[in-house]
């Protein structure tokens, strides 16, 4: 499989997000991240991988301002956003799609999208048209309650809602969670389109192989620290990564681990099967 990594974006002088030495957790004195550093450059898709409990979601939540940062700092487009309240980050250009409960189920799709744009009322109609072009299904379902949609459709609404605020950086927490392999490919193809429209993407992904296929770079977290980083291809073949996944045993590369632990199947361009 050829990785989609054609355009030259990995320019370290053009960082959109920089996380430095982050220490954070859900409860005081019980940190989950113990000095985690990552960065994302403009135009990239970066995937965060790691075994269960590595602190992947915690990292994203800390960036989104949902957790108290104990130490370290976070910069978005050169601005220090450490400790900034979640609701202010939208205006700083940060979009975030949580893993679960990521749509307002009792509200219509159109209302969900409008809520995405509460700070961008003036450009709302324009953004919405673009979004409807990108995802014709959103236009089709606009009057339905989001709770009535299937998993894949909801994911689309959630992403669409985040895009309504015209983010510079879009963070996704396991966009493939609960989706069939087929549907995962559909969602990932959409992410590529979104990136090509000028939105940088940072995502957490369990499905390492599928995630890395569309990514430029990746990070592997273990025990709350960023352990390995590199471009997507090299990560797939790095034996160290396999060790981290297997808890330090065995000498397998990512490729083997991935085939063993995930259910990646042949990518296809099939439609919404959910």
């Amino acid at each position: 499989m050829t990785p989609i990594n054609q355009h030259k974006v990995n320019n370290p002088n053009n960082k959109i997000l920089e996380v430095h030495n982050l220490v954070a957790g859900y409860i005081p004195n019980l940190n989950i991240l113990h000095g985690c550093s990552i960065h994302v450059c403009v135009g990239e898709i970066v995937t965060i991988l790691g075994p269960n409990g590595a602190g992947k979601s915690t990292l994203i939540k800390a960036i989104a301002g949902l957790l108290n940062v104990v130490e370290g700092h976070i910069e978005l487009q050169g601005k220090n956003i450490t400790g900034m309240e979640t609701h202010r980050l939208v205006r700083e250009g940060l979009g975030y799609v949580p893993q679960t409960e990521n749509v307002f189920a009792k509200l219509s799709v159109a209302e969900n999208l409008e809520l995405g744009a509460i700070h961008h009322r003036d450009t709302m109609a324009e953004t919405r048209e673009k979004l409807y072009d990108l995802f014709p299904d959103l236009a089709r379902f606009r009057n339905l309650h989001a709770g009535k949609l299937s998993g894949g459709q909801r994911q689309m609404v959630a992403v669409g809602r985040a895009l309504m605020a015209s983010p510079s950086l879009l963070m996704l927490d396991e966009p493939s969670a609960g989706l069939s392999p087929k549907l995962t490919q559909v969602v990932f193809q959409q992410l590529l389109k979104i990136r090509d429209s000028g939105v940088t993407i940072l995502m957490v992904e369990q499905n390492a192989k599928a995630g890395l296929q569309i990514s430029d770079r990746g990070y592997v977290l273990a025990e709350g620290v960023d352990r390995v980083t590199g471009d997507a291809q090299s990560l797939l073949h790095n034996p160290e990564v396999g060790e981290l996944y297997m808890g330090g045993h065995g000498k397998s590369t990512m490729e083997n681990v991935v085939t063993a632990t995930t259910e990646v199947s042949e990518p296809s361009n099939g439609g919404d099967s959910a």
Binding site: A64, L66, T86, H87, N102, F104, K106, L107, I118, A165
Partner: peptide
């Protein structure tokens, strides 16, 4: 609409930029 959003899911509302 923001109030209905908060009543359904306060965290998601914050993520959307709503000041709780």
């Amino acid at each position: 609409r923001m109030m209905r959003a908060v009543s359904e899911n306060p965290t998601l509302a914050r993520i959307n930029g709503i000041d709780l």
